[in-house]
Amino acid sequence: MSEEQIKNLETQFEARIARDEKIEPKDWMPEKYRKTHIRQMSQHAHSEIIGMLPEGNWITRAPSLRRKVALLAKVQDEAGHGLYLYSACETLGISRNELYDQLHTGKAKYSSIFNYPTVTWADMGAIGWLVDGAAIINQVPLCNTSYGPYARAMVRVCKEESFHQRQGYEIMIKLANGTPEQKEMAQDALNRWWWPSLMMLGPTDDKSVHTEQSMKWKLKRKSNDDLRQQFIDQTVPQADLIGLTIPDPDLKWNEETGHYDFGEINWDEFWQVVKGHGPMNKERMKARVGAWERGEWVRDAAVAYADKKQNRKEKQAV
């Protein structure tokens, strides 16, 4: 194709997206569109899969059977969501194993929040309430993103995730209304997860790369700062309601803007964790790679068995 032809296709392509048409796997697309989507979707999928670990950490220790089944179902959903997203990614011509490879070798990123440890039961509450809360804010707009398979996966994800945040908030309510020890546990969890949750919505707009292009492709509908503000505005009253204190002395309602003002985020910490220096980066990768490697003989056995069965079937047919 000549440069002019490509340019022409690109113009048509952008016009389709602007008209709110969806792009489907076999449609022509600019290479950059494909690459950006693979990166974002796989990053999203990896986050779901790594995200199973901090919560999985408490499955065996959940304090009641009711909490245990809810947590199991939630962590299982994350596996499911990872799977939907890997599948959507695969429609762009990259295999799940290649994506795993990128994760396992550290080439691909996942959400940094999962590099913090879950030290008490209240962390299950805080994660559901804050981390899933922030995730939902990020994800709902993606149900309308331009790439069809991604949008469809996100519709399913958002539908299923509606119980996740409630599950977490309910844990917090119970703790906040419980004994002083329980309330302290809840407050401590909020103290530790609040700032990482704010960071989860991404670097500030002036530091954020790719935003403009992503907006055009509907990979992003609002800027990081807007999303963060939305998250804070919706979460602060929820904390007030159950008598917990947001660990930010600068937090206060601003009549003029109609939003909460909030304190400085420690971006040094954010970048350190992104670079792999969070408290749990190494543990998470070890657990992930370990599970994959320990599973190799199992996956190979299943393939060998399928081949044998196929051969037997073919022989019978002769």
């Binding site: 499955i59 799977l83 320990r294 199992v298 996956r299």
Partner: peptide
């Protein structure tokens, strides 16, 4: 105990 540590994503979901 296996949730999150299964040999494949699909098997993980099944065990859970």
């Amino acid at each position: 105990e296996l949730t999150g540590h299964g040999p494949s994503l699909e098997t993980d979901i099944a065990c859970t």
